[in-house]
Design a protein around this nucleic acid. Sequence first.
DNA 1: AGTCTTCTGTGATAAATGTTACTGTAGATT
DNA 2: AATCTACAGTAACATTTATCACAGAAGACT
Lengths: 208, 208
Amino acid sequence: MQTSLKTIFPNFSSDLISTIEENGSLQHFESGTILMRTGQYIKNTVLITKGKIKIYREGEDGGEFLMYYLQPGQACAISMICTAKSEKSQIMAKVVEDVTVMMIPLQLMDKWMMEHRSWYEFVIETYRSRFEEVLEVVDNIAFRSMDERLEFYLKRHSDACGCSEVNLSHQEIATELNTSREVVSRLLKKMEQRGLVKLNRNQIELLK
Amino acid sequence: MQTSLKTIFPNFSSDLISTIEENGSLQHFESGTILMRTGQYIKNTVLITKGKIKIYREGEDGGEFLMYYLQPGQACAISMICTAKSEKSQIMAKVVEDVTVMMIPLQLMDKWMMEHRSWYEFVIETYRSRFEEVLEVVDNIAFRSMDERLEFYLKRHSDACGCSEVNLSHQEIATELNTSREVVSRLLKKMEQRGLVKLNRNQIELLK
DNA sequence: AGTCTTCTGTGATAAATGTTACTGTAGATT
DNA sequence: AATCTACAGTAACATTTATCACAGAAGACT
């Protein structure tokens, strides 16, 4: 393996790392691959070591309402939560940047929870942070108007990638916010006039 | 104790029940009491044995956006999630029907997770079901219009109490959906015209 | 260069929701 | 019974968001 698990998951004990390497299977998926569908049974827990996965809720009309992104060092909370009873997924997971993931059979979850303290803590922290993130999403759609939500969305993106450019078309943004492309274009134009962003084709630079 | 824990939490082992009775403290709170505030540190996990608690997200303008209700046999997922690091609460919890709760010091959480299988399973299931419930809330506000959300809201209420009457004023409903009283009145009137409900003072009867 | 496709900008208009203002009514209080 | 208060109904209007229609610009392809 090029980049060691230990680097990506620094809190895992050496013991746990070995166990993961023994039992997990490292897999690659291309951007665009759908890793999980609503209603599908979950058979694996997924640890991301490279790339980016989008977790979203699918609308009837093709909306892809963004919940959050999974990045290296993170894991899919849903797949962990559904573990116990091998429940059905309530969400969609789509690769948005080619990923390398470690697939771990569900039945090992419970075992590791008992045997590896660092795994236990990782799972709890994953649950907690995702729950919090989803609560923030609820906040936004419940209390904020579209312009504020758009600003928040862009900020989240640049925070996630650590840069100030968001390389998405207006249409893609509209889909993730469940609104229309025209609305996004208009609001972005207003933001540009307020000096908050600079608009290029397929790219939005955040200025402040 | 009048009603035994064993009856309310049938899946707990006898062993666990004894441990809870030894370490927890049974407390009563009146309707209207705020048990948890946004930003507050969490020091206890709460098991509900009687009454009803509303978990909501507070808006700046006094909105009380409903996430879900906690009822006998359930526990506060947030308080469990925040456990590990004694994190701050992201939500509000308000008693809406006089409750009796078992308060359990946070530090016991981790210990019990390891020692009591039935506690472990209960916690996991609590996480899972609440996460799912919040996802459904997101679905509703992201993809549905107010009339559909109102119908869903009423259905949820009658499901929760097991009856077909919802005893709330239009204002209370409006607060929980973060809209205005007038909008709720209008939509309810339309539902009445469609024969879906019968409107009385402080009460809505679901007909279908 | 010319053609195509995708992305972006913008006006006009429609629909949903929020706000203001006022009325009536049921039940509680005196 | 008279009064008071919280609740409910509704019209008129404002605002936000969605939809339709179209035009221009950037880059891809031949």
